[in-house]
């Protein structure tokens, strides 16, 4: 590896064996005795390199291979093929020095013990990472200041709100001051304010310690707020690696207008925009409209149709990505 790159990934591939069976009782019995396996390529010859201090967004629909890639980079998974070097280490050798220099934070998994206050789990991490008392106090002071932890750490984790818990999870994952952070959906399930605070924290952490951050998220806003560079993975393959600005120019000039309309089938909406599928399958009708026309189309809709509800939103990240590779 070269000095400039802190992470080098080459031909990284991971194939899972997944047992599969047809539906129905007979198939269930058959598979109890004889399993059929299918190979699923979760990550397929992925290449990239990352410089120290970069914040990179990992994008892709569910099952694209983002989490698998992060797990390989943190060392949890052995790849089927290819190699990766992070700070000169091969992650899956799980060397102590390597593990002390990185962190993996997963929004959907708990590192903290349920029954005790987060502060006690922090102390445990101090012992695990062998952090001296002075350094530990200093780090805790800084994390407290950045995350505004306050008294939250003194309450048993089970009594915390999701947002409070995530702050504590972040603190727990950062007590050893890792220089490379792998974050898998760190803002999942949080409300807008809490998301914003976590983002603010990550930006500041990156700035202060020049930490390298790789982040996956379902919320486009996380990525746009934090990452100048994005890597897109789709079906395990690397589809795009470059500036976020470039990507948005390519695919984001669309807005999705949701229209609440009685007997929508009676109206011809083709004149306003292309029909598209909504996120939650509700009764709204969704139209894809070029961004610069969004305002004018909205006012036309309101003026010409008996509309009782209207929403304007960015297209969901899945459809953005879907579009990026279709068009």
């Amino acid at each position: 590896m070269t000095i400039e790159n802190i992470i080098e990934v080459k031909d990284l591939s991971k194939t899972y064996k997944v047992s599969e069976r047809d539906s129905g009782f007979k198939a269930a019995v058959a598979s109890f005795f004889k399993r059929k396996f299918k190979d699923v390529k979760a990550v397929d010859h992925v290449h990239f390199s990352i410089r120290p201090g970069e914040m990179v967004g990992f994008l892709g629909p569910n099952g694209a291979g983002k989490t698998t890639t992060l797990k390989m980079l943190s060392g949890l998974l052995n790849p089927t093929f290819g190699h990766a070097k992070v700070m000169g280490y091969t992650p899956w050798e799980l060397r102590g020095e390597y593990l002390s220099a990185i962190t993996l934070i997963m929004g959907q998994r708990n590192r903290l013990s349920w029954d005790i206050p987060a502060a006690d789990s922090f102390l445990l991490n101090q012992a695990i990472y062998r952090i001296g008392d002075i350094e530990y106090k200093q780090t805790m002071r800084e994390l407290d200041e950045l995350l505004e932890l306050g008294d939250v750490v003194k309450k048993p984790v089970r009594n915390l709100s999701l947002g409070e818990r995530m702050k504590c999870e972040l603190a727990a994952g950062l007590i050893h001051r890792p220089s490379v952070l792998f974050l898998d959906e760190p803002t999942i399930g949080l409300d807008i304010t809490a998301q914003a605070r976590i983002r603010e924290f990550l930006r500041e952490y990156n700035r202060r310690y020049n930490a390298t951050i790789i982040l996956t998220s379902h919320y486009m806003a996380d990525v746009t707020a934090l990452c100048e560079r994005v890597i897109l993975i789709h079906h395990g393959k690397l589809m795009y690696d470059g500036a976020l600005a470039e990507l948005s120019r390519k695919i984001a000039p669309f807005k999705v207008i949701g229209v609440g309309l009685e007997n929508a089938a009676d109206y011809d909406l083709t004149g306003y925009g292309e029909r598209t599928v909504g996120e939650n399958g509700d009764a709204m009708v969704y139209l894809r409209v070029p961004a610069e026309q969004a305002t004018s189309v909205t006012s036309r809709l309101l003026a010409e149709l008996p509309i009782h509800d209207i929403t304007i939103a960015d297209p969901p990240i899945e459809s953005v990505i879907e579009q990026a590779f279709q068009g």
Partner: peptide, 13 residues
Amino acid sequence: RDGSFDYVLLQPV
């Protein structure tokens, strides 16, 4: 089952 064993593996102990 809930995957938090991942964190156990990632500790330098």
